[in-house]
């Protein structure tokens, strides 16, 4: 116990300032202004891997480390789409994941937003051209913000999420 406390003190606070929103990531305009009004600054995210290689998942997990300190931005990941305001979707959409993705979208209460992640999620990328994949996330559900990269850095992902929050 004492060792853990000493370690916590020795490391100190290392969290970085979150990035500003980036309008160039936005794919859909005229978003619902109600979201910002309802949410204030708290946001619940449900992540859906629709066919990714798991590279994007590594960077989503990194968002929780003390440097990016996602929860410090009042953003957290939730266990069900029914609890979520925003879907963070990685991958191209694999054929077998198209229906689960549509269901996760339908289960997310309105008003909701979708951020597509990675080159595969944005355009299909390397994996989206595979014969059993349906390409980008926007081919299956509406997308508001698309964050390219293979994988996109945690800062870039956070920027995408914050952009989706701006109206």
């Amino acid at each position: 116990m004492l060792k853990s406390l000493r370690k916590i003190l020795a490391v100190g606070l290392i969290s970085q300032t979150p990035p500003a929103p980036d309008e160039s990531l936005r794919t859909a305009q005229a978003l619902d202004a109600r979201i910002a009004a309802v949410l204030g600054r708290a946001l619940c995210i449900r992540h859906v891997d629709a066919g990714s290689c798991n590279g994007c998942e590594l960077e989503i997990q990194a968002l929780g480390n003390p440097y990016y300190n996602l929860e410090g931005c009042n953003i957290r990941f939730v266990a069900s789409p029914r609890h979520a305001d925003l879907l963070l979707v990685s991958g191209p959409v694999a054929k077998n994941m198209a229906e689960p993705l549509r269901r996760a979208y339908a289960a997310t209460p309105d008003p909701k937003r979708v951020v597509a992640l990675g080159d595969c999620g944005c355009t299909g990328g390397v994996l989206g051209q595979c014969p059993s994949a349906l390409g980008s996330v926007a081919n299956v559900i509406p997308v508001h913000v698309a964050v390219p990269g293979c994988p996109p850095s945690p800062m870039r992902i956070l920027q995408g999420i914050l952009t989706a929050l701006e109206t």
């Binding site: 891997d49 629709a50 066919g51 990714s52 991958g91 191209p92 694999a94 054929k95 077998n96 994941m97 689960p100 390397v126 994996l127 051209q129 595979c130 014969p131 059993s132 994949a133």
Partner: peptide, 22 residues
């Protein structure tokens, strides 16, 4: 099998010197 994308078939459509990216 949910994220089956058909990687083996995709490899067959690629130049052999470019397959390392996939």
């Amino acid at each position: 099998g949910y994220v089956h994308r058909g990687l083996e078939q995709r490899f067959r459509e690629l130049p052999i010197l470019a397959g390392h990216r996939l």
